[in-house]
Amino acid sequence: MALTGLFLCFFLIIHLLGNFQLLLPPEEAQLQYNLYSDFLSNNLVVKIISYVLYASILVHTLDAIYLSIKAKKAKGSSYVKDKRNRASKWYSRQMMLLGTIVFAFLVIHFKDFWFPYKFGDLSSDINGNKDLYTLVIVSFQKLWYVILYAVAILALGFHLLHGFFSAIRSIGLYNPTYNRIVKSVGVVFAVAITLGYFVIPLYIYLNA
């Protein structure tokens, strides 16, 4: 859980940095973004990493389902009066729900961008690269689509807020000072990823 989670965190950074190219001036962004996409889909190293990524998503999901079933079995009957929530953050208890939202979003995300790019019939830009840029820009002209993204990214943000430091704990970092640092880094990371991923659809929508 921790290892796949941290790998996915690493991927989020790379994916975000790549997507920042969408914020360039339109003509430049189109050529650069399509060139970048073409480079990613034809590079062997990236290809290997992408398979690790698919595997990580799958293992992370299956592990979550397994652990949820295990927790359900370990719990006794429920309390009539239950105030245990006072002791922990809501998002630390709702990782499965937040993860499910992120997973549902991923299905839509793959269907709308990954699938058309890999198997669809995309037109080419003037350099002859598949025009993923236009597909992205057109998609984010719709307000409901931007809202869908905002909800999913917010869920992702809370997922990371708990997930990042939790993963480091599961690996076994127990030094109190380092743990304080990791917790702060985790908050900065979660906020940065949330804002970063939200800025792009918002920018595209507002500049339409």
Partner: peptide
């Protein structure tokens, strides 16, 4: 069950 680091245990 397993630990998911909610940290509720230490609080109580």
């Amino acid at each position: 069950g397993h630990c998911t680091n909610t940290e509720a245990c230490q609080v109580e």
